[in-house]
Design a protein around this nucleic acid. Structure first.
Lengths: 137, 137
DNA sequence: CTCTTTTTTTCGAATCATTCCATAATACAC
DNA sequence: GTGTATTATGGAATGATTCGAAAAAAAGAG
């Protein structure tokens, strides 16, 4: 049984081909928008409906399998959240990269918690850079 | 000359009453949505149009005076960006608080820059907490 | 202050994204 | 296989955002 089938079952979701396609596309780490997903998935499965993409993304988001990434380009991007990470966005070419947690980020979270007396549930962090290796400027 | 008039002039924007009202409302640090702004501003100025709110927010965003805050509640919130800060969001009551940069965050930014060999332009960070002093749970 | 130019505001219409709805199809447990 | 609950589909409905044209107002010059 594929990993995605197993993942869906543990979250009480039926392992439909459409859902698995969405996850497979997200796995490519392109951080696609709904429109990108719809275009990509229709190539394999022409009957795939836009409503299905919306609905599945919403469902996967509710279950914590998928997260939104807002890079302020007017469209929402989506990402599989298989492990805690943050994002790096190139302002020039728009490429989004995952960045794993490191000691310094964990230290910041601790500093927040001790200083403010709170328990942080999640850090959504987007670091913007002016250019990156993909647009080599 | 009021601070906002001066600020707008330095960004080559005309200091219209509508624009100043938007800034004054944002200054309250309610982190309002477009809808909130429209409702609040119409009370003072009933002829204020929704299109004007949208347009002014877009203009102020382009000039870097205002930033978007996406707390994943389906609506975009807006904030004056007069100095670098990040946000704390209570998942329970939805209140958004500003948090100034501290040493640990500066250290994280430095660690990103040295480790990845990049120059970070801006950090958009939203720390989610389960409950806060405003909803006292 | 008045004139001129440019920007901004306003309102309604148009557009675009997202959600809803009813029906058909499918996954999965037994 | 059969039955039941869930999901997919397409089109219509909704709701948010943008557009466009005309009127209003700001800034600057004289």
């Amino acid at each position: 049984m594929s990993d995605f089938v197993h993942l869906l079952k543990t979250k009480d979701l039926k392992a439909t081909p459409q859902r698995i396609c969405v996850l497979r596309e997200l796995e490519k780490k392109n951080h696609p928008t709904i429109e990108h997903l719809y275009d990509a998935l229709r190539k394999e499965n022409p009957s795939m409906s836009l409503a299905t993409v919306y609905k599945n993304i919403a469902t996967l988001k509710e279950k914590g399998i998928v997260i939104e990434v807002n890079i302020s380009d007017g469209k929402m991007h989506y990402d599989i959240y298989s492990h805690p990470h943050v994002h790096l966005v190139c302002q020039n070419c728009g490429v989004i990269q995952d960045i794993d947690y490191d000691d310094a980020l964990v230290a910041y979270q601790h500093s927040l918690e001790t200083h403010k007396g709170i328990k942080v549930g999640r850090l959504d962090l987007i670091a913007t850079i002016e250019s990156c290796s993909f647009c080599k400027k």
